[in-house]
């Protein structure tokens, strides 16, 4: 390799590090709430005692350092009447 060649492209170890940092951050995020599916089912069961529902949506958010679970319960329109 020439003197100049080494400056041209990033060494593979650096690329490995960059890629791992991204992949692991995503992995950790998606493993943060392993109970989400069960939670969704249980919420549906409880709310259904009182009202018909279409769906329960749970969104993961991060505001600054605060982890937020945003739970949205979509009611079935027919149940109002």
């Amino acid at each position: 390799m020439s003197l100049f060649g080494s400056f041209k492209k990033k060494k593979s170890a650096q690329r490995a590090k960059d890629r791992l940092n991204v992949a692991i951050t995503l992995d950790r995020d998606s493993n943060l709430y392993p109970y989400l599916d069960e939670l969704k089912i249980e919420i549906m069961q409880i709310v259904q005692k009182y009202s018909k529902i279409k769906d329960v949506r749970i969104n993961k958010e991060k505001v600054d350092d605060q982890d937020i679970l945003d739970i949205e319960i979509v009611l079935d329109e027919d149940s109002k009447t």
């Binding site: 060494k11 593979s12 170890a13 490995a16 590090k17 791992l20």
Partner: peptide
Amino acid sequence: QKGEMLSSEDILDI
């Protein structure tokens, strides 16, 4: 040394 393998420092960082 050639920069083709993650160093222990990199791994500890990650």
